[in-house]
């Protein structure tokens, strides 16, 4: 039945898209706001998923584990930025290529560590609601997608309010534009960047919880998400935090429609087709400011 298929493709697409936004949110901070292309972010997300699986094996709820792991992930993010800053920024050799190389290496190391510790077996969580669905008329929303999909709007709203309305939030929005303007304002630009990197890493554990509630995760699961996460950030417009939700959902719905009515094998091409088409018409992305 066409209507049935169409409505459910849209429903699935919106939920998947919201989850894509959760995955990309940390990158929207490091790449969109700080202009550091942290290609290791999806690997952070996988590491987060593993932490959630470990906690769940002790009977804890995945979302509770993610909440508890926010602070440790924040601290780990501080460490990664400090490493990056010591290797490149302080020597004045921080550029896109160096950052990409460094964080590519970081993601390989993370994958290998997970592989050594947990093996190639997939990890998963067991929660009561997986397997059940919420049915509204023709629309059927499985909880294993619906619950993770609700995390993104919460995280995006919290982060957006933080960046708008706190002193540190204003400094984070300012730092990529002009570090010297921050120094002149009596604020340490390195501290602000480190803090922003920590926040980005903290979002990874929540995104990891989302990912592992949807389905099992293996150490290399992040690789599939790298391209899509960058596509979401650029499509949203560099530095636009609310835009990640719209961009994620646009990609998610398109992928779901293509999967339902053409072939699932075309779906991965969708994100980049939309990205290229949008950039041709609006180089600043959907919600980005013109520069």
């Amino acid at each position: 039945m066409f209507a049935d298929q169409f409505i459910n493709a849209i429903g699935t697409g919106v939920m998947l898209g919201s989850i894509y936004a959760a995955l990309a949110l940390g990158l929207a901070v490091t790449f969109g706001l700080l202009h550091i292309p942290n290609i290791a972010h999806p690997a952070f997300v996988i590491a987060g998923a593993y932490v959630v699986a470990m906690g769940n094996s002790y009977g804890l709820d995945p979302l509770l584990v993610a909440l508890l792991a926010l602070a440790p992930f924040y601290v780990a993010g501080l460490g990664f930025y400090e490493f990056y800053a010591r290797v490149f920024e302080r020597r004045g050799s921080a550029d896109t290529m160096n950052a990409l190389t460094l964080f590519f290496g970081v993601s390989l190391v993370l994958e290998t560590l997970l592989l050594m510790r947990f093996g190639t077996n997939q990890q998963s969580v067991s929660v009561g609601y997986v397997g059940q669905s919420l049915t509204i008329g023709l629309l059927s929303l499985p909880y294993r997608l619906l619950v993770p999909a609700l995390l993104a709007p919460v995280m995006v709203a919290a982060l957006w309010l933080y960046l708008r309305h706190t002193h540190t939030g204003i400094a984070v929005r300012a730092v990529a534009h002009d570090e010297r303007a921050l120094s002149v304002s009596g604020i340490d630009p390195r501290w602000i960047k480190r803090h922003a990197f920590g926040i980005a890493a903290a979002t990874a554990v929540v995104a990891g919880a989302a990912l592992i509630i949807i389905g099992p995760v293996d150490p290399f699961g992040g690789r599939l998400q790298i391209g899509r996460a960058f596509a979401v950030v650029v499509l949203a417009g560099m530095g636009s935090i609310p835009g990640t939700i719209a961009a994620g959902i646009l990609i998610g719905v398109s992928e779901a429609l293509v999967s339902a009515f053409a072939s699932p094998s075309w779906a991965p091409a969708v994100a980049f087709s939309i990205l290229l088409a949008t950039l041709a018409l609006r180089p600043q992305g959907l919600f980005g400011a013109r520069r």
């Binding site: 204003i170 929005r173 300012a174 534009h177 002009d178 010297r180 303007a181 921050l182 002149v184 400011a289």
Partner: peptide
């Protein structure tokens, strides 16, 4: 050296 994307008050 103002921050161009911030408002006057910010």
């Amino acid at each position: 050296r103002l921050v161009p994307n911030l408002t006057v008050e910010e």
